[in-house]
Amino acid sequence: MSTVAVIDYGMGNLHSIAKALQHAAPDVDVQIVTDAEHILRANRVVFPGVGAMRDCMQALNQSGLSDVIREVAKTKPLLGICLGMQALLSDSEENGLTLGLDIFSGHVVRFAEDLSDSEGNKLKIPHMGWNQVQQRAHPLWDKIPQDSRFYFVHSYYAKPNDSAVIAATTNYPDAFACALSQDNVFAVQFHPEKSQTVGLQLLNNFLHWDGQS
């Protein structure tokens, strides 16, 4: 039986993601884990997270999980979700400047204040709700229609230095990178575990992905 480790480093509720993974692929052993040994032993790793970037990085650095995630990023399929995506960038402007894991070269920045849509309506921050995702070819989008809506809730977004790592974009109001991919690493800003059918499909795709793009 293949295993997927959901990294528990004290940032937020992991039951949703664990339940969704189990639902998406009943044949996979889903484990919520806190230690390096279990993470390194699993076939695949999910790196979730909600909350603030500084707390996230502090928890990862203190527990030594930063190095474990860097190791996973070189060796097996890794899925970063929401703050777990942002933490993969070089740094974030949240909480002053917070250094990230630097697996993707680039920055995490806040949406500008006073954004408005084409009709002049004020755009709210956080960007919250179901928005359309414009995919670029990648096995994790298998069986997911182009422009499907996924559930987002965030105030910061990733700006990778190399646009070749962008696996999908979303408009709010301008296009931003809502998914990144590089070798065996895939990361999404939205919450697949809260995005109903298309979200479960993406999780299912990840749980059967061999890490090749």
Partner: peptide
């Protein structure tokens, strides 16, 4: 193409 309004 933009953020959808929600029904809750």
């Amino acid at each position: 193409m933009s953020l959808a309004k929600r029904i809750i």
